[in-house]
């Protein structure tokens, strides 16, 4: 079983992953010990830099008594000598029990899945999919709000290029959450993607006014707006200012609204927000560990 795209999962399957992750929590926190994956080896191939995803996968493996090996930049490995991904995967497949892959090309994880006999977990392929991020986002929403469906989720930031928001909004639509997309005009959710969400019976709202959207939000999901998307630095400053989360913005929000962010953040959430009970982004980053523990244990056959 590979974990390549959130589209490969039904709602029931996702809920099952979240249930297993829930049971992993005491081990993820270090309160209990586990030998569930004793003797198992995870091949960790990161062709692109990553802090949270790589560390949380390796932490997940270690917490369950397994080991990880691999690289976090292709320099110095045979990849730098021009080896194809297919060949690298075939080799790592022989050394490990499961493979986690981050790669700059879209579709890389699906390709790896074709060449590997062992399970492949997609840790982000270019502008494509990042299913384990989506699962930990869903886990965080369910943990904080008790359920996923029925929540009004406002997603703000770079909705055009952000891979996280595409997978997440699809999954939220599947769960029947209400969606509002807030972005600068040039970074709105692609039409094709909106259509896909509408085909699931959801009518998302789109706009540019964050203050208005936040008023009846249960979840505010913030993503980074990248400077390099704007040819004019002055234009970037203007946009970045309009989409900044600070205590003033939260005044009109529901008391129990949660704020999430896949991190790293630059300045889209002011540090004063960190202290508020609304801030869930560090807990969200931690949730990567139990969710990835659940997925590793499942693909390696240690839990059903």
């Amino acid at each position: 079983m590979d974990i390549v795209s959130i589209r490969d999962f039904s709602r029931a399957q996702i809920e099952h992953v979240l249930d297993v992750a829930e049971r992993m929590l005491p081990v993820a926190k270090g309160d209990e010990k586990s030998k569930l994956l004793d003797g198992k080896v995870l091949g960790s191939l990161f062709y692109e830099p990553s802090t949270r995803t790589r560390l949380s996968f390796e932490a997940a493996m270690a917490r369950l008594g397994g080991k990880s090996l691999g690289f976090d930049e292709p320099k110095g490995s045979s990849v730098a000598k021009g080896e194809t991904l297919a060949d690298t995967i075939r080799m790592v497949d022989a050394y490990c029990d499961a493979i986690v892959l981050r790669h700059p090309q879209e579709g890389a994880a699906r390709l790896a899945g074709h060449f590997a006999a062992k399970p492949v977990l997609n840790a982000g392929d270019g502008a494509g999919q990042h299913p384990t991020q989506t699962m930990l986002d869903l886990f965080t929403i369910r943990k904080s709000k008790g359920k996923i469906d029925g929540n009004h989720v406002v997603i703000v930031g770079d909705l055009k290029y952000g891979r996280t928001v595409h997978s997440l909004s699809e999954a939220l639509a599947m769960f029947g959450a209400q969606l509002t997309f807030v972005a600068p005009p040039t970074l709105q959710m692609p039409k094709e993607h909106l259509k896909h969400i509408q085909s699931m019976g959801i009518k998302p709202k789109s706009g540019t006014d964050l203050t208005e959207a936040v008023k009846d939000a249960d979840v505010l999901y913030v993503t980074r707006i990248q400077k390099e998307r704007f040819p004019d630095p002055a234009e970037y400053q203007k946009v970045a200012g309009a989409f900044k989360i600070d205590p003033a913005l939260l005044k009109d929000a529901k008391k129990d609204m949660i704020i999430m962010h896949p991190l790293p953040r630059v300045n889209e959430i002011s540090p004063e927000v960190d202290k508020t009970p609304n801030a869930k982004y560090f807990e969200q980053a931690f949730n990567g560990v139990p969710v990835r523990m659940a997925l590793l244990a499942m693909v390696l056959g240690a839990v059903e």
């Binding site: 194809t84 991904l85 297919a86 090309q105 879209e106 579709g107 699906r110 390709l111 392929d125 502008a127």
Partner: peptide, 15 residues
Amino acid sequence: KCANPGCITNKNEPV
């Protein structure tokens, strides 16, 4: 071929 220049199938892989 895939119209997406960023697709892995456009990168000299044996598929």
